[in-house]
Measured scan of single mutants.
Amino acid sequence: VTLFVALYDYEAITEDDLSFHKGEKFQILNSSEGDWWEARSLTTGETGYIPSNYVAPVD
């Protein structure tokens, strides 16, 4: 499982989006939707859509 880490803070715009803070880690559930990925936060356990350009793979 490839994990991703937030590079910036993000505040949800719609109820389907997931708010997060810089440094938060995610498991990507679906990355086939283009620039918005469905993800689960490993910090909160919540799922929602995140902007793919706000995250990077964890080394």
Rank of each mutant, 00 (worst) to 15 (best):
G48K: 02
I13L: 13
V5I: 13
T2H: 12
T43N: 09
S31Y: 13
T14C: 15
R40H: 07
A6V: 01
D17M: 15
I13Y: 08
E15K: 14
Y8P: 00
Y10I: 01
L18F: 07
E46Y: 10
L7K: 05
A12Q: 06
E15I: 11
F20L: 05
F26P: 00
T2F: 09
K25W: 13
W37F: 07
I28N: 01
S41E: 03
F20G: 00
T14Q: 12
N30F: 07
D9V: 03
D35Y: 15
F20K: 00
L7C: 07
S52D: 02
Y8M: 09
E38F: 15
L18G: 01
F4G: 04
V1M: 13
A12P: 05
L7T: 04
A6P: 00
A12V: 02
D17P: 02
R40C: 08
V55C: 05
A6L: 01
F4W: 15
L7I: 10
T43S: 12
V55H: 01
V58P: 04
W37P: 01
G34R: 12
D16R: 15
S31P: 09
E11R: 09
E38D: 04
D9F: 04
F20T: 03
P57D: 04
A56F: 08
W36Q: 07
D59P: 12
T2V: 13
A56R: 10
Y8N: 06
Q27F: 14
D9G: 05
P51M: 07
R40T: 12
Y10P: 00
T44P: 01
E38N: 09
G34P: 15
L3G: 03
G34F: 10
V5A: 05
T47V: 13
L3F: 10
A12W: 02
G48W: 02
V55A: 04
G45N: 09
E33H: 15
W37A: 02
S41G: 03
I50L: 07
G45T: 04
E38R: 10
A56Y: 08
S52E: 03
F26K: 00
V5K: 05
S19M: 03
R40S: 05
E38M: 15
Y10Q: 02
F4K: 02
T14Y: 15
E11Q: 12
V1P: 13
K25R: 13
E11N: 11
G34T: 13
D17Q: 15
Y54K: 07
G34W: 11
G23R: 02
T47M: 09
A56Q: 10
D35M: 14
Y10S: 02
L42R: 03
L3R: 05
V58Y: 14
K22G: 04
S31T: 13
N53L: 09
Y54H: 08
E46G: 08
A12Y: 02
L18K: 02
E11T: 14
Y49F: 11
P51Y: 07
G34V: 14
E24Y: 06
E15Y: 09
S52A: 13
K22W: 05
H21C: 12
F4T: 03
E33P: 11
V58F: 12
A56C: 09
E38K: 11
L7W: 03
S31M: 15
S19W: 03
G48Q: 02
E33A: 14
S32C: 12
W36S: 06
F26L: 08
P57N: 05
S31C: 13
S41W: 02
G48S: 01
Y8Q: 08
E38A: 08
V5H: 05
F26R: 00
Y54F: 10
I50H: 00
E24W: 09
E24N: 06
V1C: 15
F4E: 01
T14V: 07
N30S: 11
K22Y: 05
S52H: 08
W37N: 01
E11V: 14
W37D: 01
V1D: 12
K25G: 04
L42Q: 07
T43D: 10
S52Q: 07
E24G: 02
A6N: 00
W36K: 14
G23H: 04
L7E: 04
D16T: 15
L29T: 06
E38C: 14
K22I: 09
D35G: 13
K22E: 07
K22M: 08
Y10R: 05
E33Q: 14
Y49I: 08
